[in-house]
Every structure is written in C-alpha cells, then in structure tokens.
Design a protein around this nucleic acid. Structure first.
Length: 585
DNA sequence: GCCGTTTTCGGCCCGACTGTTTTCAGTCG
C-alpha cells in the first residue's frame, strides 16, 4: 500500500510531460522528446506504484522506461526533484509552454518568439502583438498567423490557458445528429463517429466523423451548410473542419468506401494506440495509414471494415473503448476479448431521483419512463435529510414516499418499483439515517456530497466506514470528480477497495456524463481487487435513463463483462444478496 | 531516450492542410 508521502504516478507523469515540453521549446531532438512523452503516458496508465517499483530497482520492468528514465524516477522519489528538469526549467521560460499551445504557434514558433522577440509567456506575447514591430518580424510568422494569434489573444482572459474541452454528454448528441444527417445523403455509403467520442472518453476537444463516399466535396459542402454549423475552419479534398454554434469543432474525414475501414480505424485512435499499431506493422515490414496497409513490396491493401485492418496485422478487432495503449494489442494478438457489457445487458436501475428530492418527474412518471426504457426494476433513491439544497427527505417524508411508491407499484405490472435512498455520508463517515431505517429500504446507495476536500486519511476512512456498513449496498460516485469542475477526491483506493470487498458493498460507475465516476482505470482496479460494480444513471428526469450508455462506455473501457455489473442481474439476486448481508450483521 | 522479426547502433508512425521559408517546415490530428 502506498504511503501518503509517496510520489504518485501522476506526479512522475507530470514531471516527464513538463520535461518533454521544455526540451521541445529548447530545441531538443524529436525522438528524445517523444521518449519522455511516451514514458509519461506509460507511467500515468500504470496501476502499480511506479515509485515503489523504482525503490525496488524494477522501474525498467515498465515498457518505455530505460536506465536513464528509471534513474530520474528514482531521483524524483528520493529527492522530490529531478536535477535535469530543474536545470532546464531555469533556462526555458515556464510560460512559454502556454504560448506554444496557442493555435498555429507550436513549439518551433514559440521558440522563435522567445529567441527573436523575448516572448516568455502569454502576457509578453500580448505586449509584443500590440507593439509597433508586431509579430511578423519573427521567422515563421506571416500576416495570417499574426492575425490569428491576435484574435486568439483577444478571446483569452488574462492568465487563462487555451483548449477548452466539452463533456461527452454535450458533444455526442451533436455528433450523432451530424452523422445521421450526413449518412442520409444519397451519395454517402457510411457515416460513423470516430475519435474520443467513439472510445467513450469523458471529454472531447472535438468531434471526429468518418464518411465513406465517392463524392467528398459534396459531403463537405453538406457539413458546411448544416444548421448546427457556425463556420468552416479548414477545408480540403479529404478533410473538412467546422465549428458548431456551441463552439465544438467537428473534423470530417472522407474516404472512398473501399478504404473506409482504414479511415475509421485511423480516426478512432487513440493516437498512442495508432502509434503502437504502426510500430507493430513496421516490425512486420508493413506500413499503416488511413488509406490502407502498404506491404514490403509496395502493394497497398484497403479494407472496408476495421476487422480487415486488424486482421491484416494478425490481430482480432479491438473494442474502441480499449484502444488506449495499455495491453490491448497483446491481447488482440492472443485470445482476443470477452463480450463486454452493453446497454442491452442492463436489467435494472439502482440510482434515480424523483420530485420528492431534486428530480424533475414524479414517481409515476419515472416508473413509466423506466418501463419504456426496458427496465425490469427501478429503485427510487432520493436524497436524505442533511442534503437540504437537494430537497433531502426526513424519516417522516420517507414513510410518506413509501406509501406513494406502494400505490404506483401496484399499478405497474412489468416494472418492479423499489424503495431506495441515496443516503448522505456525513463528514465523519456516519450515515444520514438510523441503522433501523436503513435496514428497511430495498436498496441503499451511500454518497458523499460535501466536504470533498478532507485530508486523504479522513476521506478514505469516511468512505471505508460507509462501505463496511451492512445496510449500504453501493457507494455512489465514489471519487466525487466532475469534469471541468473538480478533480477526484484524494483517496487511498487500495483501502477503499478492501473495505468494499470485505463489506460486500459495490462501487458505482455513475453514468452522468459530467461525472463518469468511477472512471475506467479505477473501475478496472476495483474489479481486479474483487469489488462488485454497478452502473447508475443517477436519472433526475424521465430522459435520464438514457445516460446509462455513458456508464456502459466506462465499464467497457474498464474491460468489464455483464457478470461484473450487479444490475445486469435479476432483482431477486440483488435482494438475496442484501438480505444475506443484513442477516450476517 | 528507448529498444531489438533491422538486435547494442541506428533507427524510431503516418498524412492533410496551411502559410510562408519560393520548395517546404510547422502544426495538427
């Protein structure tokens, strides 16, 4: 188990990313920079403590970590510093990396701005851009680039950095509408969403679309003319980039139907996955691109579907959610993958709200919507009393609510309607209802909603205590993260997983796209630790059950099968599980 | 800086588009 003082994998990864950024701005050799980036991704994706591996002298067990980087990890672990990084940071201005991230600048032009115009950060760039000599005196920057930089600076608040990311919950529906409309064009053979949205990444920088057609210019025109599109950013024979009215960039790539599989594979990525795939291909004397696979003798083979692309490289097709450069290529070369969980596998809903607390629909309306969504059972889990701002229920209100649930349940023939609660986990780990009341619910979700910035020790013991409670069936949105708003709470996950496993309590994959919490990496680790998982839509309206799909994306990215998700099982099994735990207590 | 179906040196993933350096480097994905 990691101690609180140990250097985390995230800190090692950040140091390597920073090193790569600074080396790039310093004009270092490209492949040396790539080595740092690659190592950073590797470390960030590692489930074990890299610091402890380093202490054991085994850091080079990790791919992409050689003697030099292992020594730097060791240095960071022992001294909290890397001398080479400090030296570089003293030479290269810290703010230059932000300059390089402005569209159209990049490391080479940032370096030129620094060397030729003394630009060291966004503010000095702003000063220079407004000065008399301007930006065009700097090599590599002409009038067009200078104007683009000025307009980006104008839209940038002081101190703010570029590159906003959009939640998948906002981006995916737009991408689906565009794909449906483009796919309906008579000269379009196929249209698919690709990129991070297809891989189920929680946030997206843009939406990537792949279209098979013999008339690419007309498809690009149709995209440019689409009512959701505000303006065209870039346009060529095979690619068209637009910006939608909500500010989401959309990249459309076009290919003939014969090589659509190659394009879809390429555009789905991830970048790291594609890099690995191409390395494998190179080892086999082949070369992979969006246009096809080139053999050693120069002949190019194209593929209508992704299956063909992977088969040509001796691989089984890899579910998009797993294409993250972890171990998926090795697995695809071996036995392949089990059938991952899908929305159709989910039998019931274990986390939903009504107007009794902060939901928008009545219990009857939620029941009807749940039935329409194909649920066999639905647990109403409104908030508990201390959550005042969300209309939490007192024990008296709970009794009244049970009467209403009984009434609605009596008229529901196909849907089993159940009495649940999302009980608040108080700051010391006690629960917001008495043990006696909690034991009477059909299902209990316990969640943290306040004081998320407690020390790691307190937060861990708080969650672990709730997880050991015999009446708690699942911990809701365990880390509290919300994309773009707050990071996950600092928790000792080994300890939480142990408490959940020993207590027979599940951890939730909360499907709300703003949360998607647990995330894929944590969910995988939980499952590996023997912890059961649930997928909870956290529906606050009748349309909320549709959010299940985001939770399914997380579960698939974690490599989970239906057996590992509790609400893929019939209700009677869950009820028996709960009864056994209450009996044992 | 890493690594070995090119095996301890010499490679390292591929291509579209843009603007500028007038023949191509840089950026981006």
């Amino acid at each position: 188990m990691a101690t609180a003082e140990e250097v985390t994998n995230g800190e090692v990864a950040r140091a390597f990313h920073l090193m790569a950024d600074l080396l790039e701005l310093d004009g270092a050799l490209r492949h040396r920079i790539m080595a740092y980036r690659r190592a950073a991704v590797r470390v960030a994706g590692e489930e074990r403590s890299v610091a402890q591996l380093a202490r054991a002298g085994r850091a080079t067990d990790l791919a992409d970590i050689g003697d030099a980087l292992a020594a730097k990890i060791g240095e960071l672990v022992e001294t909290r510093e890397i001398a080479a990084l400090e030296k570089l940071a003293a030479r290269v201005p810290r703010g230059l990396a932000a300059v390089a991230r402005i569209g159209g600048i990049g490391p080479a032009r940032a370096r030129a701005l620094w060397q030729e115009a003394d630009v060291t950060d966004i503010e000095s760039l702003r000063v220079r851009a407004e000065s008399e000599e301007g930006l065009t005196a700097v090599s590599g920057i002409g009038p067009r680039t200078a104007e683009s930089i000025r307009s980006q600076l104008a839209g940038l608040a002081a101190g703010q950095e570029p590159e906003p990311r959009v939640s998948i919950g906002r981006a995916l529906p737009i991408a689906e509408r565009l794909v449906a409309d483009l796919g309906a064009l008579p000269f379009v053979e196929r249209a698919e969403i690709a990129g991070g949205l297809r891989r189920g990444a929680p946030t997206a920088k843009d939406a990537d679309l792949a279209v098979a057609t013999s008339r690419p210019r007309e498809v690009a025109q149709a995209l440019a003319d689409h009512p959701t599109v505000a303006r065209v950013l870039s346009r060529g024979a095979q690619r068209c980039v637009v910006e939608t009215h909500i500010g989401l960039p959309v990249e459309l790539r076009l290919s003939p139907p014969a090589s659509f599989g190659n394009l879809l594979q390429h555009l789905t990525g991830s970048a790291a996955h594609n890099t690995r795939l191409r390395e494998r291909a190179a080892g086999m004397g082949m070369s992979v691109s969006e246009h096809g696979i080139t053999a050693a003798d120069g002949t190019v083979t194209t593929h209508e579907d992704e299956e063909g692309v992977y088969a040509a490289l001796g691989l089984r097709v890899i579910p998009p959610e797993l294409r993250r450069d972890t171990d998926e290529i090795a697995r695809a070369a071996g036995g392949g993958f089990p059938e991952l969980v899908s929305v159709a596998d989910i039998r019931g809903e274990l986390h939903a709200h009504s107007t009794w607390s902060d939901g928008e629909a009545s219990i009857a309306e939620m029941a009807a919507a749940g039935r329409t969504a194909g649920l066999a059972y639905l647990v109403i889990t409104d908030h508990s009393q201390s959550l005042g701002f969300a209309g939490g229920l007192t024990p008296e209100q709970v009794a009244d609510q049970w009467s209403e649930i009984a009434e609605v349940a009596a008229s529901e023939r196909r849907l089993r309607l159940l009495r649940g609660t999302e009980v608040d986990i108080l700051s010391d780990g006690r629960l917001d209802f008495s043990d006696e009341l909690l034991a009477e619910f059909d299902w209990v979700v316990a969640s943290v909603h306040s004081r998320l910035n407690q020390s790691p020790e307190r937060m861990t013991s708080r969650l672990a205590r709730a997880a050991r409670h015999p009446a708690v069936d699942v911990i809701g949105h365990p880390t509290g993260r919300m994309h773009g708003r707050r990071e996950e709470a600092e928790i000792d996950f080994d300890e939480l997983f142990a408490a959940a496993r020993d207590g027979g309590t599940a951890l939730e994959i909360n499907a709300s796209p703003m949360r998607m919490d647990l995330g894929a990496g944590r969910a995988r680790a939980a499952a590996d630790a023997g912890v059961a998982l649930t997928i909870g839509s956290d529906a606050h309206s009748t349309s909320g059950f549709a959010l299940r799909r985001y939770g399914v994306m997380v579960a698939r990215a974690a490599g989970l099968i239906p057996d590992q998700i509790l609400n893929c099982r019939p209700w009677d099994e869950l009820a028996a599980r709960r009864a056994a735990r209450l009996d044992a207590a």
